[in-house]
Amino acid sequence: MTNSASEATSLIAAEDGLIDYIRQHFRLSEDAHRIPENWSYRSQFHLLLALGRRFTHVPSPDGPTNMPNRLCYSNAARYARDHCDEGVVYAEGFALPRAGLDVYLPHAWVVRSDGTALDPTWDDAPGRAYVGIPVADSRLWPVEGGGLLQDFDRTLPLLRDGFPQNALADLGRPLTAGLSQSGGAASADAN
């Protein structure tokens, strides 16, 4: 197996591990929350499995952006606003910070028009996995503080009502796809 094929296989395995993590929390939250039947989603994990996408990290051609650590939501939103003419959008979900770890963190990044992830907060270390929701509507991007899926006041309306029509970007790969596919409709895979 060539080095790039090995790296692709490792990335798919890392993404699959991240999706399994989200599925575990999906199952745990099935009976944990009592919400009205007419809500769109029971938890942020349900939302991620219904609308989430896979993103392959590609280093920035200009090198790391060196935005402040621990401010990923505002960093990603600010970067997306500053570079909207390049077709980037804000994305949020969970990420694997380092290859070989089994630690998945809530995180935000930006997605380029080709569906690849650019991370304005973390360095460009290889082997990261990203699963999240690309949000095209800049009115939803956080200005400061927590993200859409981690801040109660932002998450609650999304769980209740879902995302507004045309708020999401059709970027990244479906959760059921490997590296060979890009674009396409969001997957509702929750198995």
Rank of each mutant, 00 (worst) to 15 (best):
S6P: 03
A99N: 06
L118F: 07
T121E: 04
V88D: 02
E15F: 03
Y104Q: 12
H33A: 13
D124V: 01
R34S: 13
H83K: 07
L28T: 06
R173A: 15
C84E: 11
S60Y: 10
H46V: 01
L11W: 09
G100M: 06
A77T: 01
A13T: 08
L149H: 08
A50E: 04
D189E: 09
Y73N: 10
R98F: 15
L48P: 00
L179E: 13
N69W: 02
F55I: 05
Q181M: 11
L175E: 05
A190Y: 05
V131P: 02
I12S: 11
R42H: 07
F152K: 14
G178P: 11
L118M: 13
L179G: 15
A5S: 12
D82P: 01
A129K: 04
P106S: 11
D85Q: 09
Q24L: 09
S187K: 05
Q150E: 10
Y21V: 04
T65R: 10
L159I: 04
P64Y: 00
E92P: 01
F94S: 03
L71T: 06
P142E: 05
Y41C: 04
I12F: 07
L101Q: 15
Q24K: 09
Q165D: 12
G132M: 00
R160I: 11
S187E: 08
P157Y: 13
D102T: 12
R128A: 05
Q181P: 05
S43W: 06
S10C: 04
C84M: 10
A117E: 02
D151I: 00
A190V: 06
G17M: 05
H57Y: 07
